[in-house]
Design a protein around this nucleic acid. Structure first.
Lengths: 239, 239
DNA sequence: GTAGCATCTTGATTCAGATCAAGACAAACC
DNA sequence: GGTTTGTCTTGATCTGAATCAAGATGCTAC
């Protein structure tokens, strides 16, 4: 169950840390790993909800769509987080791999059995769904009240984390795993506006944008926090 | 535990239906009812999270604020629903009574004891937090992608429910419990825009607005659903 | 009654962000 | 190499909703 991808940071309180792989194995009959390439669909909104997915490696986006094609990303899921089974017997979101992704898939009865047998798993899932609720409320505040500049700054505060082991000066951020249009769909903006806001922040020397890779480097974390409004941040992995 | 206010509809799967009052009483040592007047504050974002509240009667709004005063309503809670204790050890939202409200308050240890002793309560709370998550994602889609007109139409589809026993023709909706400014804070709009959109819908004879009470009457549910975009609706009691 | 205050509506104007349009740049292919 | 294709950036213009500003209406108190 542990991530075998050194680049994927796993939260300390995550699934993998809470429930050792061997315990899961003992109680799950149909556990199976699934791999997804970038842009590949994992599940589709409205289809029967049969599986619970746990991210082992990579990053997945959860999305909701309107009939006319407008799409909103309601959250991201990273290593150690789960998605899939929820309130209803159909999936309430679609899911798509952003980077190359490895997921652990459990059938509904397996999940029920494991929840019964492993109290620490049940506890983890309850805590995690509360965390996802708080993150979704963060996103509601962001979408409902913030300006485009504030939205982008907040996004960078949360998702522009430094890669582990990166000690370079000036402080630099890892290449964002998501594209400009994914950032836009998450923030309720257009690609053009996201690009303009990044350009503006770069112009103020708060960030620098990599010439070739489009990666984002934070030059002035304090000013970035100011642009995001102090005391306000969306939780990582909103959802 | 049952609502003693006939006007407050209680969902069939709600707290009150799931867990009989006597069972709760047996396991809770410090259970107490609290009453709130309209506009009275129940809890404040950032303060230590000590209580879980269950709405017995009335309606409560949950809100998040930015340092500069901008406020976003992240959800409403009605009879049979709970709020308060969540992911963190401080409240992540403030709560304020909209109508006159009666709440049932439980201390943290009492909640833990009851969850241990009453499996149906634990199950209800898990289900309910998943429902609140789905509702919050509905709101994210609404805030991120919908126009003002669509937002207001969706809101009416969900919160403009018919009062029980109201069989009048033409179909009429109960007076909305929340003010225009509360609708605005929930939809990420301004009061003026909400008022204008309601006026526009009234002008198209999709709804009628009560002259004295500002209550909203639906004249043409089909057209209203059209304005909200078919197949898209925010779940009641978004949260 | 009417005075005071809060809420709601309506109109005029402004502006942030969307839309439309054109290039710039990069990775993938032959 | 050159061509194709997709993503990103930049500029010009448009527009939906915010803002600013009056009024209208309703509620409460006296």
């Amino acid at each position: 169950m542990t991530s075998d991808c050194a680049a994927c940071p796993v939260r300390r309180d995550s699934f993998c840390q809470t429930v050792p792989a061997r315990d899961l194995k003992a109680h799950s009959k149909k556990r199976s790993f699934v791999e997804f390439k970038p842009r590949q669909t994992v599940m589709v909104e409205g289809e029967p909800a049969t599986s619970l997915f746990i991210v082992t490696c990579g990053i997945v986006k959860l999305l909701r769509s309107l009939p006319d094609g407008r799409t909103q990303i309601v959250g991201f899921r990273q290593a150690g987080e789960y998605f899939g089974l929820g309130e209803r017997d159909t999936y309430t979101t679609s899911a798509e791999a952003i980077s190359g992704t490895r997921l652990c898939r459990f059938s509904r009865p397996d999940v029920a059995a494991m929840r019964r047998a492993l109290p620490q798993l049940k506890k983890y899932m309850n805590r995690e769904s509360l965390r996802q609720l708080t993150a979704a409320q963060d996103q509601v505040l962001l979408l409902g009240q913030m300006t485009a500049r504030e939205k982008v700054a907040n996004f960078l505060m949360v998702y522009g984390y430094r890669a582990p082991g990166d000690t370079a000066r000036p402080q630099r951020l890892a290449k964002l795993p998501m594209s400009r249009s994914e950032i836009a769909d998450f923030l309720g903006l257009t690609v053009e506006t996201v690009s303009r806001m990044l350009a503006a922040l770069a112009n103020e020397e708060i960030i620098a944008i990599g010439q070739k890779t489009h990666s984002v480097h934070v030059l002035n974390p304090v000013a970035l926090a100011g642009a995001a409004r102090p005391g306000v941040a969306i939780a990582r992995h909103a959802g």
